[in-house]
Amino acid sequence: MNISLDVRNVSLIYPLRTKFSLAPKDHRVGGRDKRINGQGRLRFVKALNDVSFSLSSGDRLGLIGNNGAGKTTLLKVLYGIYPPSHGTIAAQGRIDALFNINLGFRREATGRRNIELRGLINGWTQSEVDARMEEIVAFSELEDFIDMPIKAYSQGMAARLAFSVATSLKPEILLMDEWIGAGDPPFQEKSRQRMRELANRAGIVVLASHNHKLLRDTCNKIMMLDKGSVLHFFPDIDAFEKHSC
């Protein structure tokens, strides 16, 4: 199958809904940002503004921009968590995402049970969970602890387990909010290798990061966002390098 991701004029208007409440008014929603429009209970922020790009198999798009530029929001729109207010997204290929790798982990459950739960949440069938179980356990190097509750794990062990499950994907289109890693130095090297393999296996990768060196090494296209709009789209790394100099 030809894998592609075509994003046309996507905008996201994020309603800053003031819920009907009897509590004292919340003044934390400021009005100084020019992207915040509307008044009273009908305030909204234009989180993405007319974003367009097209990716085909083999493309690795890096998203850069300051905090609040819209990188994570764009990833969540691409993944289908936020519906775009305008524009269209046409994806050929299954989209997987690595956002919060600790999501759904339960301290009281064993490592094995957590793998199972996380797999089900990812949309795997029970037989897919069973098929991947031993590989995940082996990668995490937690064979001796896998049937213990994860509350007994050290932070590093829990992170290794979360990383191992989250990256046990066969993605066609992979969305990542920052490059992830885990564990002690030897495991970190192993996780870097795993991430490289994951990115190589995926038909398309969209990676949001502040690490420009990582993006140069990983991506062949860069999109710079600012306040929800595309500031620059670099069709290759050379163009990005020239702009950065």
């Binding site: 339960r106 009281e108 459950a109 049970r113 739960l117 089900l120 949440i121």
Partner: peptide, 17 residues
């Protein structure tokens, strides 16, 4: 259903584990 039944079972187990 495998997702919500598994999560629900886990919720109950957590409360009484």
């Amino acid at each position: 259903w495998p997702v919500w039944t598994a999560l629900a079972r886990e919720d109950i187990d957590d409360q009484h584990r």
